[in-house]
Structures are given as C-alpha cells and as structure tokens.
Amino acid sequence: MQFYLDFEKPIVELEQKIRELREFSTENVDFSSDIKKLEKKASKLRDDIFSNLNRWQRTQLARHMIRPYTLDYIQHIFTDWFEVHGDRNFRDDPALICGFARLDGDPCVVIGHQKGRDTKEKVYRNFGMPNPEGYRKALRVMQMAEQFGLPVFTFVDTPGAFPGIGAEERGQAEAIARNLREMAALSVPVIVTITGEGGSGGALAIAVGNKVQMMEYSVYSVISPEGCAAILWNDGTKGPVAAEALKLTASDINKLGNVIDNVIPEPTGGAHNNPAEAAALVKKALKAHLDELKQLSGEELVEQRYQKFRAMTQMTEAE
C-alpha cells in the first residue's frame, strides 16, 4: 500500500536512499558526509515542494491516508480520556466520537469526527461521515458540558454528513440544524479545530465555536471540490479546478478576516510527518484560546459567539 501522495514521491525516495546508506554504514565504511549532503538536499526539496502547493494538493494533504485523526490528537493532547456512546434514541455513531478528558489537569469535553485507517476500520467509521445520531450524540454531550460547566473542544475532519436513505429518514438536516442553533446558545467555551477536511454542513454541525482555528494543510468548504465540479461542470473529475475556485485552504479562509481566528502551522512536510509535534502545536493554541475565554461569563460567551457569526457576510448595500 502506498502511504504517500504523488507530489511527495521525490522526497520519499530520497529518504529511502538515506535510510539505505545508514544501513550500509559500518565502522569501516563511512557515508556520513554523503548522508549529510542528501539530508540537506531532502530538506531543501521538501521546502521547495511544500512552499509551492496548489489548492488541490493541499486538499490531498488534508485527506492524507496517514494524517493524524481525532483519536491521535486526543492521545497526544489530553489525559484521562474516556469515550461515551449513543444518542439515546437510535444507536451509536462511530464516525463522530465524544467523551471527557483533562487538558493539563482541567476537565473538558472532546468531540470529533473519526476516520478509519485500514479498510475494515474505514467502513466501521463510515469514512468519517456521521449519520443524524452522531450529531445528536454530540449535542447530548455538549449539553452535558454546559450542565457541568466544562469547556468543549471539537476536532473537525469529515468529507461531509452521510448522504443515505437512512440518514434522510432520520432527519440528517434537522440534526445538523438543531446543533447549529443549540451550539450558538451554549454557555461554556467552545473551541473548534479543523484538522483535516471541513466538509460543509457535516463539519459545521460541530463547529459553531467561540474560537475556530484551522491546521495549515486543512480545508474548509461549502461543498467538496468533486461535488462542486459535478454540479458546475457536470464532471466530478474536475476537482482540482473546483478546489482553485472554492478557495478552501486555511490561508485562503484566513484572508477573509473573520471566519477563523488563526492558522496552526504544521511540521515540515505536514502533520503526518510528525504527529507528536503537530499535536503539541495544537495543544499550545488550544490552551491560549481557553485562557482567553475563561475570562468571560456564560452570557458573554454566548454573545461573543453570536457576534462572531453575525459579522460573517460579504455584500454591498445600496440605498
């Protein structure tokens, strides 16, 4: 199985060569100067490639097969994590995980989309596409956070809410809509991190936060590039063109000014290149946001969140 993207191939090959040289090195044969040279070359190559990524390549990085998922971040950032299950109505949704943990000792709620690594887990997690019961479970847990006065951290990484017959039957739209309304009214701090794919309403349903931040190589959009291409050009393979048009990368969205608060830089080569370092950077940002929000009362938190989303608009007003 291939664990790298096409544009990562030259770097991966060079690293393979370095590894081989290391293995061949013995006390008698010294490759250290060659290794150093190659390492320098690899680092330059990586910088070159990563500083010139187009929007489609960034989308691919956001969906990278070895990109850290919510459970990876939880493992690195929090302690005392325990997961809770079910919406008390229909079933548990493994595509959206909810639980409690501690952030440097402080109790909190953690909610996030979860994708699978291998085929079996991918199917089990429904490729990170929640059904209505996933959103209803998330709402149940968020309201528990309010009950106990705990801050909520959400991690967003989904292609979108699942479009299926059962999902429609059980009210996918209603579940998302209700979350939007109820999240807006939560009296505890809500801090949102887009870690991978921010896929439309399915992402937004856990992303109405006091603070919203994006990882450097994450994307956030009203529709997937493929879906957009299928509708506008009648051709789902034109995803790369649609990605450019949708301006869906973290830096694009940051430029709009008021949609997200900050972009978290990723380790060179992307979060998958060093998940521990990526998680440490996320943790630092989470703590800074939480410290700021702790100063606000419940009412002020609701108002700050309301004004934040209220201001999101781009239009002209003639008399």
Partner: peptide
C-alpha cells in the same frame, strides 16, 4: 457554491 465558505457560515448565522 460561488461564495464558498461564506455561504456555509450563513447556516450558523441564521440558526444562531
């Protein structure tokens, strides 16, 4: 679609 992320945010704004 032509307003990408900003259209998505209208869902949160109206619901709030």
């Amino acid at each position: 679609m032509q307003e990408s992320i900003m259209s998505l945010m209208q869902m949160a704004k109206t619901s709030a």
